[in-house]
């Protein structure tokens, strides 16, 4: 089967990744079998990258063998699909602040050894820098007020030249009372100071009041 985007396959309106560890489900995702291959259907309601694909995302910057820094990896739902895409030769450095979430991720990382679970504060890259390396892709999904600043700081420190940085912005965690449109415009401006924005997608009904940006460092 041919991939629609690097490592990402399309089945009707659904997107899926070719499972690196067949027979093991990460969340209760649907499985499509084609001969010996198992494709794990990407649930747009449980993964913001999955939602972005459904909303028309064309470029992810992810490829087989890519190195990824994932800030806010949580329990590894989205990460499991990225893990499929980058494969055994790729690496995901997964930074998460919540001990509860990373407890689940540890189990995922046991079978998917390309995931490196790091319990640390994404706000302070100095604390985990010695365990990571320069990466091709930075992916961020953290619900923090200063998420754009955190994103810029990490991309500047860890992103290789020409690498891609993706961020899911949650308007409600920046200011609950402000109109999301206004917040997205304001965050976009912050990002544009350091990045060229390639894609700008709203996640629509999959994730209310969320925007998704794909950027390249200037």
């Amino acid at each position: 089967m041919k991939a629609t985007i690097d490592g990402i396959y399309r089945f009707g309106k659904d997107f899926a990744t070719l499972s690196m560890v067949p027979k093991y489900k990460i969340y209760d995702e649907k499985i499509i079998r084609k001969g010996k291959d198992e494709y794990r259907v990407w649930d747009p309601k449980k993964s913001k990258l999955g939602a972005a694909l459904r909303m028309g995302l064309k470029e992810t910057g992810l490829f087989e063998g890519a190195k990824v820094l994932y800030l806010g990896i949580a329990n590894g739902t989205t990460a499991s699909h990225i893990s499929d895409i980058v494969g055994p030769r790729g690496v995901i450095y997964g930074v998460e602040f919540s001990p509860r979430s990373i407890r689940d991720l540890l189990l995922v990382a046991k079978r998917r050894t390309n995931i490196m679970p790091i319990l640390s504060d994404a706000r302070i890259p100095q604390r985990f820098a010695s365990r990571v390396e320069k990466v091709n892709v930075v992916y961020q999904d953290i619900a923090q007020k200063d998420q754009s600043a955190i994103f810029i700081r990490n991309a500047e420190t860890f992103l290789k030249k020409g690498g891609i940085a993706m961020i899911a912005i949650k308007a409600r965690s920046i200011d609950v009372t402000e109109n999301p449109k206004k917040i997205f415009a304001q965050e976009k401006q912050k990002l544009q100071a350091k990045f060229n924005i390639i894609t700008d997608i709203k996640l629509g009904h999959f994730e209310v009041d969320h925007a998704f940006f794909v950027c390249k460092l200037k």
């Binding site: 690496v91 001990p99 990373i102 540890l106 990382a109 046991k110 390309n114 490196m116 319990l119 365990r131």
Partner: peptide
């Protein structure tokens, strides 16, 4: 391959220690 296997174990171990402390 051997390096990333080691790195996975290293990160998992540090994370386990931190979870215990939390």
């Amino acid at each position: 391959g051997q390096y990333y296997q080691y790195l996975n174990e290293l990160n998992s171990e540090i994370t386990r220690i931190s979870i215990k402390a939390a």
